[in-house]
Lab assay of single mutants.
Amino acid sequence: KSIMKVYCQICRKGDNEELLLLCDGCDKGCHTYCHRPKITTIPDGDWFCPACIAKA
């Protein structure tokens, strides 16, 4: 079994998992407080990182 360690693409830390959003496009993580602008609430439904939005 392989366990994927998810970490924030900005701060490179994997702590505060409850505030770590996973992109529905690329599965990369980003803390709500590292994202600019900050994300104050966990979004309902799908969330896409800035890189995936730029590709769309």
Rank of each mutant, 00 (worst) to 15 (best):
D44Y: 04
H35T: 11
I10S: 10
I3V: 09
T41R: 11
V6W: 03
C8Q: 01
E18W: 03
K5R: 08
R36S: 15
D15E: 15
V6A: 07
T40R: 11
V6M: 10
T41P: 15
R12K: 14
D24N: 15
L20D: 01
P37I: 03
A56M: 03
K13E: 11
S2E: 14
T40W: 09
M4I: 09
T41E: 13
Y33R: 10
C34A: 01
P37Y: 01
D24C: 15
K28Y: 11
P43F: 02
C8D: 00
W47K: 07
G29Y: 08
I53E: 13
R36I: 05
H31D: 02
M4W: 03
N16A: 07
I39N: 13
I39K: 07
G29I: 15
K55R: 00
D15W: 03
R12E: 13
E18H: 14
P43K: 09
G29D: 02
D15P: 03
I3F: 03
L20R: 03
S2Q: 09
D27I: 14
T41S: 08
K1M: 06
M4R: 06
D44I: 12
C26P: 01
C49T: 00
C26W: 00
C8W: 00
D44S: 11
K55A: 01
C8S: 00
L22G: 12
D24S: 14
K1Q: 09
T41Y: 04
T40G: 08
V6E: 08
C11M: 00
I42A: 14
A56R: 15
V6T: 11
I42M: 14
V6C: 04
A56C: 04
D24T: 14
P37G: 06
Y7E: 12
F48D: 05
C11G: 00
C34V: 01
K55S: 15
C49F: 00
H35R: 07
C30E: 14
L19H: 05
A51E: 14
W47P: 06
Y7L: 06
H31K: 02
K55F: 02
A54R: 04
C52F: 01
R12M: 10
Y33P: 03
F48H: 11
D46A: 06
G25R: 08
L19E: 12
I42P: 11
G29V: 13
H31F: 00
I3W: 04
E17F: 02
L22E: 14
S2W: 02
P37T: 06
K1R: 02
K5E: 06
S2H: 15
L21M: 09
L19S: 11
E18I: 02
D46K: 14
K13W: 04
L19Y: 10
A54D: 10
D24H: 10
T41M: 07
C8K: 00
I39L: 14
K55G: 14
D27G: 13
K5G: 09
C8P: 01
T41Q: 12
C30V: 09
C49N: 01
A56G: 02
G29R: 09
C26H: 00
G45K: 02
G25I: 02
G29T: 08
C52A: 01
E18G: 11
D44T: 09
H31Y: 01
C26Q: 01
M4L: 06
R36Y: 04
K28V: 10
C26S: 01
K13Y: 03
D46W: 01
C52K: 02
K28Q: 15
Y7C: 07
I10G: 06
I3E: 08
P43I: 15
C34I: 00
G25W: 04
T40N: 04
K1N: 07
Q9H: 10
V6S: 13
Y7R: 06
C49D: 04
Y7N: 14
K5F: 02
C30H: 12
S2D: 14
D46H: 07
I39F: 06
A51R: 08
P43Y: 03
D44G: 12
